[in-house]
Amino acid sequence: MQTAIYYGLATFLTLFSFLKDKNKTKLSLRKAWKSFVNILPQLLGMISVIGIIIAYLSPQTISNLIGGSSGWLGVLSAAIVGSITLIPAFVAFPMAAILLENGAGYMQLSAFASTLTMVGLITLPLEIKFFGRKFALLRNILAFVFAFIVAFVIGRVVG
């Protein structure tokens, strides 16, 4: 749905741009291609490493890591496992649902979901490449810490 909007918008604006100024349009497309090619190798590398990790971290393995899934130790383990990498949502939430069935608590799942979507060790080099070390480290550390605050509230509200 969203992607369709992106494509529609990109097509429409490119046509519009082409009608107004052919050369500027060529320049912008060349720039688009250049930045795409620029990050492609790193993206491919990241995607494949993440794929391998997801394959080996089955929900059963994670269930074991999260432990009896109760208490703050479980929250900590969940947060750490979630921090290994940023994961696409289409993997993260189905995985969380399976963990729920396997007996993980909501508090642990909250920490897991927060760090999955916000903290990524494997994506850190890419983030550093774009924004520098201090920015990337600060952002990831803050997101990690806040995962516990959200987990605490989830524990109170959802149980």
Partner: peptide, 19 residues
């Protein structure tokens, strides 16, 4: 997913850059 999402985003960024 990447190949699907990235092209329009980069095209839009290119247009943003130029226009």
């Amino acid at each position: 997913e990447m190949l699907f999402i990235l092209p329009p985003i980069f095209v839009l960024l290119g247009l943003l850059d130029v226009w």
